[in-house]
Design a protein around this nucleic acid. Structure first.
Length: 632
RNA sequence: GCGCCCUUAGCUCAGUUGGAUAGAGCGUCUGGCUACGAACCAGAAGGUCGGGAGUUCGAAUCUCUCAGGGCGCACCA
C-alpha cells in the first residue's frame, strides 16, 4: 500500500512540474519524515529546483503545495523547514485498505529469471560460508517470487574439477580403498563429514611430498577422459556428497534444481608463458590501439592440452542460461523434496519429459566476492560475442565470506598463531578442514532451542517440541545470515549465532506468537478482523493516535521494502524491517491492554491492528524462509 | 605492483537514490512478571562517523588524498 501511494505521489508531482515549469526530472526523490506527525512522505525537491528556477526553496515549495491540487489518498501537503514538502496521507483510507488486505496491482516485467546459488564443490561437507550463500540465494528467490516473477533456481556443480579429484586421491592413495569399499563408505549417514576430514588429509599429504601431487594429475586426467574405474569412483563420491548438500539445505527449506557440469573472443597465444593456450583479455584490463596484451592481462580459457578451464566452462554455461548455446542437456529427476517438488539434474541421456530449463531473460549468480574477477570475465566474454543485452541482465550477486572469530576458532580446538589471535576474523579453509560444518551448526541450534522449549512447555508432546525447536533454530540461523549486508564479512561466533534474544529471528517469531495468543485467549480468529464497520478516523488523531498509526504505517510497507531489496539485490533490508515491525508491535503490546479494553468498538480496532501486524510480519518472515511456531 | 571491498558507541552492525536531532542489538548499570506468556518492556551511560582537503544550500553518504585492515590478481574453481 505504501509503495502504491508513493507511486501515485510521484506521478502527480511529475505532472505538476511539467505543467507549471515545463520541467522533466529523471528522478523524484521521496523520503520519509523523521516523525509521523510530519507526514508519511517528504519531498526535498524544492532544494533541487532552487537553482534551476532561480527562486528560494521555500518559495518553490509554497508554489508546489498550492498548485499540486488534490491527490487521491492524500489529506494535505505541508511546507516544512527550509523547503521540505511533507505529504500526509488519509490515514483512515490507508488503514481500511490494509485491514481488508487490498493489493493494488503492480507491474511485473515479463520473462523468466534464473538464480544460481549454493553451487558447492561436491567433495566435502557444506560449511557456514555455504549456508550464507544458500540462504541469501533462496531468500532472493522468494523476494522475486513475492514480486510476481517467474524464477528458476540452479545449483551448479563441477564434478570434474581438482577438488573432487583430491578426495578420490585420498580414497585411492592414502586409504587404498577399492571401489566396493568406497561405495560402502558413501552409504554412511554423513558421508560428507568423512570427505571433510579426508580432504584435509590429502592436502597434508601433498605438503609432505611434492611428488604426491602427480597422483592428482593422474586422477584429474582419468576423470576428464571418463569411462574408467577412477571416473566412476569420482562420480559416486560427488553424487553422494551432492545429495548430502541437498539434504542439508532441505533442513532450512531451501530447494534448487541441480545441474552438473560435464565437461572468438579468444586467440591462440604463440609466445611466452601462455604459449599454446587460447586466451582472452582479463576483465578490467585496458589495452591501447595496436598494443600487445601483456601476459598478466591474459586469462587462459582453453589450456594447451585442449581441456577447458573454469571461465571457459562458465562462458558456455551462461550462453546456455540465456538460450544462446543452441543445444540443451538431458535431465533426470534426482532428489524429491518433502514439500512435493522435484530436483532435476542434467545428464547426457535424460528423461524425455522434463520442464524447460534455461533460455531466461535475467540471471543472478550468488557467488562470493572473491570470484568477482572471474564473473566479470564471463560478462566481458558475453559482450565481446555481441550479447550486450544479456550482459546487462547478468548480475553477480556478490557477498562477503563468513569467517571465524579467533575465539570461535580456539573453541573448535585450532592452534592459532599470535598473529591470528590479533585479527578480528580468520578465513575458513576447506583445504585445512578449518571451519564450522553446516549440519553441526544446525544441530546445535536445534539442541539449544529444544532446551528452551522443554523448559517452557513441558506439557507439549515431545515430537511437537522438537518441531517447534526446529522452526526456531531455522529462524535464528536464517535471520542471522540475512541481518548483515552482503558487503560485510561475518565474523562467526557461536554465542552470537545461538542467541535467541534481541535482533534475532526468534524475536520476530515471538512477536507473531504473542499476537496469535491474544486471539487464542479471546477465542477469536485473526481473519475475522478485516476492518469493516470501523471508523478509523477516531483512532488516528492526537498523541496516542500517532503512536498506533506508526504501527499501521510500518505494516503497510512490506511490498515497498521488498521492491527495494530486489532493486538493490540486498535482502538485509527486509530482515531489518521485520525486526523493526516486531519491535514496534512489542511496544504496542505492552502499552495497550487489548482483551480487557472496555470500549467494544475500540477493542475491535485494537484487535484489527494486531491482526494486520501479525499478517504482515508472517509475510515478511515467510519471504526470508522463516516460519512461525504455534507456541514459543 | 594492479584491481575490488571495508573503517560509524566498549563489542557486532544499520544508516537504500546526498536531506530534518547519526540509530539498533549485545554488553554494563537501574527498574518492571498473580500473564493478551519476561525468548519481552522501560530508563541511564556510551559518538572528533579512521585523518585531512574539496564539491554542495546541505556530506557518515559524492570526489581527491593519506593511514589501517581484508580479498583477489594460476594452463584451481
Amino acid at each position: 500500500m505504501y509503495r502504491h501511494l508513493e507511486g501515485r505521489l510521484t506521478q502527480h508531482v511529475r505532472d505538476f512540474l511539467r505543467r507549471t515549469y515545463d520541467l522533466e526530472l529523471p528522478r523524484i526523490v521521496i523520503e520519509q519524515p523523521p516523525r509521523v506527525e510530519l507526514g508519511e512522505y517528504a519531498l526535498p525537491l524544492a532544494f533541487e529546483l532552487a537553482k534551476k528556477l532561480r527562486k528560494s526553496p521555500r518559495k518553490i515549495a509554497e508554489e508546489i503545495v498550492a498548485g499540486l491540487g488534490a491527490v487521491p489518498g492524500f489529506e494535505k501537503f505541508e511546507l516544512a523547514g527550509a523547503g521540505y514538502i511533507n505529504a500526509h496521507v488519509k490515514r483512515e483510507e490507508l488503514a481500511s485498505a490494509l485491514a481488508a488486505d487490498e493489493k493494488p496491482r503492480a507491474q511485473v516485467p515479463p520473462g523468466k529469471i534464473l538464480v544460481e546459488h549454493t553451487s558447492i564443490n561436491p567433495n566435502k561437507a557444506a560449511h557456514i560460508g555455504h549456508l550464507r550463500n544458500a540462504i541469501l540465494g533462496d531468500t532472493f528467490v522468494r523476494l522475486l517470487q513475492f514480486a510476481g516473477r517467474d524464477v528458476d533456481v540452479q545449483n551448479y556443480i563441477d564434478n570434474t574439477g581438482v577438488q573432487v579429484a583430491d578426495v578420490v586421491v585420498g580414497f585411492l592413495h592414502i586409504e587404498k580403498k577399492s571401489r566396493e569399499e568406497i561405495e560402502q563408505v558413501t552409504r554412511q549417514p554423513r558421508f560428507d563429514y568423512y570427505c571433510w576430514d579426508l580432504y584435509a588429509r590429502v592436502s597434508q599429504w601433498y605438503e609432505q611430498n611434492k611428488e604426491n601431487r602427480t597422483a592428482r594429475h593422474q586422477v584429474l586426467h582419468a576423470i576428464g577422459e571418463g569411462g574408467n574405474e577412477t571416473a566412476a569412483i569420482a562420480d559416486v563420491i560427488s553424487i553422494m556428497v551432492l545429495r548430502r548438500h541437498l539434504m542439508t539445505m532441505d533442513r532450512l527449506g531451501i530447494e534448487a534444481f541441480a545441474k552438473l557440469k560435464e565437461s572468438g573472443v579468444l586467440y591462440l597465444e604463440t609466445e611466452g608463458k601462455n604459449k599454446g593456450c587460447w586466451v582472452m583479455k582479463r576483465a578490467g584490463a585496458s589495452v591501447g590501439e595496436g598494443e600487445q596484451l601483456s601476459e598478466e592481462d591474459q586469462k587462459v580459457i582453453v589450456r594447451s592440452n585442449g581441456t577447458v578451464g573454469y571461465v571457459g566452462k562458465d562462458i558456455a554455461y551462461h550462453l546456455w542460461k540465456f538460450g544462446l548455446l543452441g543445444r540443451d542437456f538431458g535431465y533426470r529427476k534426482f532428489y524429491h523434496y518433502p514439500r512435493g517438488h522435484d530436483c532435476w539434474i542434467s545428464t547426457t541421456v535424460g528423461a524425455l519429459d522434463h520442464p524447460h530449463f534455461g533460455g531466461v531473460e535475467e540471471i543472478y549468480n550468488v557467488i562470493d566476492a572473491r570470484q568477482a574477477e572471474a564473473q566479470n570475465s564471463v560478462i566481458e566474454a558475453l559482450r565481446a560475442l555481441g550479447y550486450n543485452r544479456q550482459a546487462d541482465h547478468y548480475t553477480h550477486f556478490s557477498y562477503e565470506m563468513v569467517a571465524l572469530t579467533p575465539r570461535c576458532a580456539a573453541e573448535l580446538g585450532y592452534q592459532l598463531s599470535e598473529e591470528d589471535k590479533a585479527r578480528s576474523y580468520i578465513e575458513v579453509s576447506g583445504r585445512k578442514g578449518f571451519g564450522v560444518k553446516a549440519d553441526d551448526l544446525i544441530d546445535s541450534l536445534i539442541a539449544s532451542a529444544k532446551k528452551e522449549v522443554d523448559d517452557r512447555h513441558a506439557a507439549v508432546a515431545e515430537p511437537e517440541r522438537l518441531s517447534i525447536a526446529t522452526q526456531i533454530a531455522v529462524g535464528a540461523l536464517r535471520y542471522f545470515m540475512l541481518k548483515f549486508t552482503k558487503s560485510s564479512v561475518i565474523a562467526f561466533d557461536f554465542k552470537e549465532a545461538l542467541s535467541f534474544e534481541g535482533e534475532t529471528g526468534p524475536y520476530a517469531q515471538y512477536a507473531v506468537v504473542r499476537a496469535g495468543n491474544i486471539f487464542r485467549k479471546g477465542g477469536m480468529e485473526p481473519d475475522q478482523f478485516t476492518g469493516e464497520e470501523i471508523d478509523f478516523s477516531k483512532y488516528f488523531s492526537g498523541e496516542g493516535g500517532n503512536e498506533i498509526w506508526e504501527l499501521w504505517l510500518a505494516s503497510s510497507k512490506t511490498s515497498y521494502i521488498i521492491d527495494q531489496c530486489i532493486a538493490t539485490a540486498e535482502p538485509a533490508y527486509l530482515a531489518k524491517h521485520a525486526f523493526q515491525l516486531a519491535q514496534q508491535f512489542n511496544y504496542f503490546y505492552h502499552r495497550y491492554p487489548i482483551l480487557s479494553e472496555p470500549d467494544e468498538e475500540r477493542k475491535k480496532f485494537l484487535l484489527t491492528t494486531v491482526a494486520v501486524v501479525r499478517r504482515e510480519l508472517i509475510r515478511a518472515l515467510a519471504v526470508m524462509g522463516i516460519s512461525v511456531p504455534p507456541v514459543m
